[in-house]
Structures are given as structure tokens and as C-alpha cells.
């Protein structure tokens, strides 16, 4: 059974129709690429899935539960994590504290007030810092990090609670080649335990990384399949690949 099923999603912003019947079906522990030209509705689809905006039509089902109108916090608690297109970490708090923030989200308010779970999460914080190569900056305010490091920190935060579904909007934006490769490895490691949806402009990166690819164009689904199928697909070539 699919871990995520978004179907017939319609979303309008005033006169602009960002999504007109687009959909996305993601299988467990796969990496699913979401591609399409600028303004094709990729981020909007991700936001509808994550609950940042409510759709005007369609359904979003996470692991069998209809979450179309659920609040973002409910979705997060149901196992969904998102990394936004523009990295959004807490600049004034330290890198380690940003991770702790992500980890302690299910702890009750009394134990947070008494700081009772800080120690319990320490080991996991240490491992995440290590995995993402952020140990040397653990006590720096996150605002001091280089851009790529901020992206990693946000991915680490999104993965901290071991979600079922990880949504990544342009995780390699602003990264150099080496950083991209490292990000690819991190995403692959994440996908051993959860499904990943990744929006990217770098087609080589997507092709190497993804098990399946969905192509959007002007808010509708053009094609969905394996990287090989997508490369052969004529409609995709028409709207998208011809522009390469």
C-alpha cells in the first residue's frame, strides 16, 4: 500500500491555478522525485501535502488516514516531515538545540519545563551531528552556518523523529557539486527507513537518486514512472526535457 496518496489536487491562488488535478503516489521506503519547469506547482503540491495550504479540491491520504484538512502539527505527529525550499532553521539557537527542538516534539510540557528529556535525546543529537558532518559547529548559533550546512541541518531536523514520509523541497539549492553528492548519500541513507519525496531542478541528481519520478506541468501530472520510463516518455520530452 502506498504511504502517501495525493489525488486530484486543485489549488487556486486568486486568478492563478497552481494545481489542476495533480497527484502523487509514493510507496514506502522509496525515493520519489518531483520535477517540472518553474511554476509548474511542485512546491504548492508539497505544501498541500504538508498542510501549509489547504487544497480547493482533492484528497491527501497518509498511511491510510485522510489528512486533507489536518493541521500541520497533526501531520507532523502522524509521521510527516518537511524541509522547505528556503532553509528555515532557528538562527539564534545553537545547531544542537535545533536538533533537540526537532527531537523533543512529543515530550509533554511538564517534562520540557523541567528539562527532563535533554539527556535522553543527547545520544541521538550526537549521532545526527555526526551523520550530517555538523559536529564541529554544534554549539554555534545556526544563523552562523554556511548555506549548505543550514540545508543539512534542516534535513537532519526533518529526519530526527524518524518520519514515515520526508518531503524535501530543493535540498541541494545553492550547494556545490561535492555538497550535492554528500546530500545524495544522506537522502539515500534516510530512505532505508522512510519514503522520501524530493523536488529538484538538477535532473542528473534526480535520475541517479530516485526510484520513481513524477513530472508536473502547469499544475497537472504529465507522467509518473521509473527514471528510465520518464526519459523515454514523449510528453515529458515535449514539456520539459526538450528545454535542456
Amino acid at each position: 500500500m502506498a504511504i502517501l496518496e495525493a489525488s486530484e489536487i486543485v489549488k487556486r491562488f486568486g486568478p492563478v491555478t497552481a494545481l489542476s488535478g495533480a497527484g502523487l503516489q509514493v510507496e514506502p521506503t522509496t525515493i520519489h522525485g518531483l520535477i517540472g519547469p518553474n511554476g509548474s506547482g511542485k512546491s504548492t503540491l508539497l505544501h498541500v501535502i504538508a498542510g501549509r495550504t489547504l487544497p480547493d479540491g482533492g484528497r491527501v491520504v497518509l498511511d491510510g488516514a485522510d489528512i486533507t484538512r489536518a493541521k500541520p502539527a497533526q501531520r507532523a505527529r502522524a509521521g510527516m516531515s518537511i524541509k522547505f525550499q528556503l532553509a528555515r532553521v532557528y538562527h539564534e539557537q545553537t545547531v544542537a538545540d535545533n536538533l533537540l527542538l526537532a527531537l523533543q516534539v512529543r515530550d509533554g510540557i511538564p517534562s520540557l519545563v523541567l528539562s527532563r528529556t535533554r539527556r535522553r535525546h543527547q545520544e541521538r543529537v550526537r549521532r545526527l551531528l555526526d551523520d550530517f558532518g555538523l559536529t564541529h559547529v554544534r554549539d554555534h548559533p545556526a544563523g552562523e552556518l554556511a548555506h549548505g550546512e543550514q540545508q543539512w541541518l534542516e534535513i537532519a531536523m526533518a529526519m530526527a523523529t524518524e518520519p514515515k514520509l520526508l518531503l524535501l523541497d530543493e535540498p541541494t539549492g545553492g550547494m556545490n557539486r561535492h555538497e550535492r553528492e554528500r546530500t545524495g548519500e544522506l537522502i539515500r541513507a534516510a530512505a532505508t527507513t522512510c519514503a522520501v519525496v524530493i523536488v529538484e531542478h538538477d535532473l542528473d541528481f534526480i535520475r541517479d537518486l530516485c526510484d520513481r519520478i513524477t513530472v508536473l506541468h502547469q499544475g497537472t501530472l504529465v507522467a509518473s514512472g521509473t527514471p528510465v520510463e520518464i526519459e523515454r516518455d514523449e510528453r515529458v520530452a515535449e514539456v520539459y526535457l526538450t528545454r535542456v
Partner: peptide, 8 residues
């Protein structure tokens, strides 16, 4: 908003 997406 970020906090809500973390699940708070």
C-alpha cells in the same frame, strides 16, 4: 509555522 511543521 516552522515549529508547527516540526509537530509543536
Amino acid at each position: 509555522e516552522r515549529a508547527e511543521f516540526l509537530g509543536y
